[in-house]
Amino acid sequence: MVESYRRRSPLASFGLPARAAAQSPEAVADADLQLGERPHRCQINLRGNPQDGRFLEAVRNAAGLALPTEPNRVAAAGELKALWLGPDEWLILGPGGRETELVGTLARGLQGQHAGATDVSEARTWILVAGGRARALLARGIPLDLHPREFRPGHCAQTGLAGANIILQQTDDRPSYEIGVTNSFADHLWHWLERGAIDYRVAISV
């Protein structure tokens, strides 16, 4: 087995943990924007027919989740979430380390169906954008309306930001947003976010 310190997140070169450690508590308290990386999550791309009861049942048995069928909604159960990505596509999101077991359980449960589970945990990192300025910062690049009347915790969307395809979800009312972005774009997106936040008081959150 390989040691985990050899593992690198897509934003490792930014030294975010060190930057976070160097922040004064006052600066953190005073910040109007938190940025951070949330890497190494369990991410499983799930395909199947939600009109097929056997499919929903198999997913419920394997992951304990009732898949959302309303577009752009997130369903949560325990430490797992399911993000609606399309009429027959979801992203199962959970803590890192669960992917191998979960993708196996799902695959077994879905055997014989036109359905599939693919481990994409390594393909994407997540970036946290939270705090009073989060909405304004994201509005600079995301064409969707993030006003609380339109987009709330439990909502998700696939959209574009800074030229990258992203998955966006709101996780609380601070507001906190998490942006799922494929590894190769993460470096660019982080630069873009920091540059866009130049007028804000930014704290790095780890």
């Binding site: 791309n45 395909r47 036109h114 359905a115 599939g116 693919t118 481990d119 994409v120 945990s121 390594e122 393909a123 994407r124 494929t182 590894n183 190769s184």
Partner: peptide, 8 residues
Amino acid sequence: HCTSVTEQ
């Protein structure tokens, strides 16, 4: 079903 795994 086709799924991009380029970045995996």
